[in-house]
Simulated scan of single mutants.
Amino acid sequence: MNAMRLGWSRGLIELRQSLTNTGDLVNHFFWPVLMLVTLFFLRDVSFGGTTFSLGALALPSILGLNASMSLMTMSQQLTADREDGTLLRAKATPNGMRAYLVGRIVAVSGGLLVDLAIFLIPALLLVPGLAVGSATAWLTLAWVLAIDLVATLPIGAVLGSLFTSARSQGLLTLPVLAVIAISGIFYPITALPEWLQWIAQVFPVYWMGLGMRSALLPDAAVAIEIGESWRHLDTVGVLGAWTVAGLILAPIVLRRMARRESGSSVSLRRERALQRVG
């Protein structure tokens, strides 16, 4: 419990710092503003022969995409903390790794909620045709977002522990972008070949977008989904499977990574970083 309290305090401090730092504020606003510009051009474009605009279809999908990107954020920040010795200092204190992970989860989750608010509030005014007038819609949005964070943050921690430097995180970007491209974020997945649809359904990005669409789109929009169903049970099942996998793997991988951390390994990474800069 002491580690939980310390981690909670640490996470809130980091979140407050990110909201008062110019560079971090730019990062918070850049992606939401970019997506709002995209929605502006899609708001009057209809999908196929339907009456649904691509803007209305894309808005909840983008929310799911932003939520899934917490995986990348978690991975990048953990790798950076490993490279600069933050993890080594956490390892040297009682329950330090637990407090560190709790703090990182609080900070990443809080930052994600800020990003979603920056995007969603103006988007609701920009894009018509959304079903946001009922409590059920917001309740669905809440549980989808909650299970999304539980599913992605442990996997992000696992991926972050596999990289030894922030520069190597670039190896993760291309596969993530490929998964996003086939997950029905900016265009309904039913327009893709069936074999690509099956591949997309293995990964959590598609299910996050589907859950968000089920919350914010009118019931008639289900006609353009696979099987003409929101598939809530399937969404819980797939994201639940990713959650279980992450919760099993993350403690094992992080413990092994922490055991390998030492002052000499941190110094060696700093020397290599200085050589690249030089």
Rank of each mutant, 00 (worst) to 15 (best):
D24G: 03
R43N: 05
G237P: 02
A258V: 15
V253P: 10
V144L: 01
T140V: 09
L171M: 11
M208Q: 07
H28K: 09
V114W: 08
G55K: 07
S265R: 14
T73H: 00
L149A: 11
A166C: 04
L126N: 11
T243V: 06
G11T: 04
R256K: 08
G211L: 11
S267W: 12
I147R: 01
S70W: 01
T140P: 02
T235A: 08
I252P: 02
L25C: 11
D81P: 00
S214E: 09
L101P: 06
F29W: 14
M97Q: 13
A157Q: 01
L15Y: 03
N95T: 05
L71V: 01
P128E: 10
A245G: 03
G240C: 06
V253Q: 02
A215D: 03
A56H: 03
L120G: 05
R104C: 01
M212I: 04
V266F: 12
L15M: 03
F47K: 01
T86R: 05
T50W: 03
V114G: 07
S168F: 11
S61F: 02
L120W: 05
I121V: 15
A178W: 10
S165R: 10
G160M: 07
T136K: 10
A151N: 02
L116K: 04
G49R: 05
P218A: 06
A80W: 01
R5W: 13
Q201K: 14
A166N: 08
A191Y: 09
T190Y: 12
A80Q: 09
S165A: 07
R270G: 15
H28T: 05
R269V: 13
A241R: 06
I62P: 06
W198T: 12
M208E: 03
L125E: 11
L171S: 09
G64P: 11
S109C: 05
A67M: 13
V33W: 08
D234V: 10
L125M: 14
T38L: 15
N21G: 04
A146I: 15
N66F: 15
T164E: 14
I155Y: 07
V253S: 05
S229K: 02
G49N: 08
I62Y: 09
A200R: 07
L268Y: 11
G23W: 12
R89T: 10
T243F: 06
R16T: 03
A220D: 13
P154N: 08
P175V: 12
V132R: 00
R43F: 09
L19W: 06
W138F: 15
T140Y: 06
S161R: 01
R260W: 00
R256A: 06
A220E: 15
